[in-house]
Design a protein around this nucleic acid. Structure first.
Length: 277
DNA sequence: CGATCTACCTGATGGC
DNA sequence: TGCCATCAGGTAGATC
């Protein structure tokens, strides 16, 4: 489900909603959600601690604890974080419930159970969470200079969509936003990264930042199934601004050619065959 | 190194 | 109405 704009939307809400709150109890009912360490280790590690704030690393959410540890959440395809009151009925597929001393709960709901919750000491990231440690450039966190983006593209011989969605190279992009970014940049998904001109690299750089900023301003994208919702259960609105994603058969907003759908890496890719080269 | 495929799951949707 | 195939925001691992 969520990519960088959705995760960032949730991070900002978490920073407002749970920072300063003390964890009174943690209930883990899911059987697959806690995979690194045992459920008991997770619960013991959390209870009594206060959350200082929320950070984002690519598509990972990290709740920073008062002892420096991170409560890490990855939503994968169908995970949701929802704030709730203890008396609220629990949705199906609620796997983890954190109850705060000040009242209120944070719930992790995940029908497809690909999502994950774990605690890690950031000083031991390389050993204990290599997936987190090896994340690539985060377009929102650190600015990247044109020469370093050029280096990143030209030093490899990869198709652009594969490159942009590789979390070890660029952190946070997935199926929706690579399609939208590549359209905004006028580049095809299967274009070889080492053939870009400096002008195309500049366009790509601008497209990445522009699409992500606009998407965050719209609080992310929710598709027809509304799998993605924010902490309060509300969908985002950026899908209304999608130019190509899930718009096959419609006219390209830029050149009026018909948008096509292709199978790429086992999933759907949408692009304009006329203005993306 | 890079491309391709599979698996992990539940649920919604569309065709017949 | 039901049954079946297909598809969905992600990622790791195997294979070539």
């Amino acid at each position: 489900m969520p990519e960088l704009p959705e995760v960032e939307t949730i991070r900002r809400e978490l920073d407002r909603e749970v920072a300063g709150k003390k964890i009174a109890s943690v209930e883990v009912t899911g059987t697959r959600t806690v995979r690194r360490g045992t459920k008991k280790q997770l619960v013991d590690r959390l209870v009594g601690h206060t959350i200082k704030g929320a950070r984002r690393k690519g598509k990972y959410l990290c709740l920073v604890l008062d002892d420096g540890g991170w409560l890490v959440i990855h939503l994968r395809m169908s995970g949701q974080l929802l704030k709730a009151a203890p008396k609220d009925p629990k949705p199906k597929h609620t796997h983890v419930v954190v109850t705060f001393a000040q009242g209120g709960q944070l719930r992790f709901v995940d029908p497809r159970t690909f999502g994950e919750v774990f605690v890690v000491d950031p000083a031991r990231l390389v050993e204990d969470a290599p997936d987190l440690a090896e994340l690539g450039w985060d377009p929102l966190e650190e600015g990247i200079t044109l020469p370093s983006l050029a280096q990143l593209l030209l030093s490899r011989r990869m198709q652009l969509k594969a490159l942009l969605s590789d979390q070890k190279i660029v952190a946070g992009l997935g199926n929706i936003y690579t399609d939208e970014i590549l359209h905004a940049a006028g580049l095809r998904y299967d274009r070889q990264s080492n053939t870009l001109t400096s002008q195309e690299i500049r366009r790509l750089s601008r497209a990445i930042l522009e699409v992500l900023h606009d998407a965050i301003a719209a609080r992310g994208s929710s598709l027809a199934d509304e799998q993605y919702v924010d902490l309060s259960g509300r969908p985002g609105t950026y899908q209304l601004q999608h130019q190509v994603h899930a718009r096959d058969g419609k006219a390209c907003p830029r050149c009026r050619a018909t948008i096509e759908k292709a199978k790429y890496q086992g999933r759907s890719t949408y692009y304009c065959p006329s203005c993306q080269v």
